[in-house]
Each structure stands twice: as C-alpha cells, then as structure tokens.
C-alpha cells in the first residue's frame, strides 16, 4: 500500500488548480466556482526541442 496521506489531504482541501495550457480550461473551472491560476505556456526556445533540453540542463528554463 502506498502512502496516500497527501492524496487524502487533497480530497479534504479546497481545490486550487494551476492550469498549464488553454486559458479556457481555467475559465470553466472558475465558472464552476473553483480557484484557477493560469500559466501561459509556450514552447521554450521557439519550439526547438534540443535547445529546450539544453536550457533545462543549464537551469535556464522555467
């Protein structure tokens, strides 16, 4: 059996969602009455996967 205390904590807490992706997903959560925080994601390094990996390795991409 895994330690589920953090999951039970989630079930007991007020749900606050960080949404990484389309803004409309955050908007519909707010409309349902939940707090949603929007992260406007875009591909790092203009979508260059190699450059993204490199930046991540160097700690320059967050």
């Amino acid at each position: 059996m895994s330690d589920v205390s953090k999951i039970l904590n989630l079930f007991r807490s007020e749900l606050i969602v960080v949404n990484v992706g389309p803004r409309s997903f955050a908007e519909v959560l707010e409309k349902q009455g939940y707090e949603a925080v929007q992260v406007d994601w875009k591909p790092a390094a203009g979508g260059d996967k190699k450059m993204q990996e490199l930046l991540e390795y160097l700690g320059g991409y967050e």
């Binding site: 904590n9 989630l10 807490s13 007020e14 749900l15 606050i16 969602v17 960080v18 949404n19 990484v20 992706g21 389309p22 997903f25 959560l29 707090e35 925080v37 929007q38 992260v39 994601w41 967050e62």
Partner: peptide
C-alpha cells in the same frame, strides 16, 4: 508553474495540457 505556486502557495493540483 513555480511563479504561480509562489503567489498561490495553497494550490494543490496542476492541470497540464501541453
């Protein structure tokens, strides 16, 4: 995500659609 969590330390779930 880290900026968002710094400002909203009670956030508990991340919905990811990338």
């Amino acid at each position: 995500i880290s900026e968002a969590v710094n400002d909203h330390p009670r956030a508990n779930l991340c919905q990811i659609s990338v």
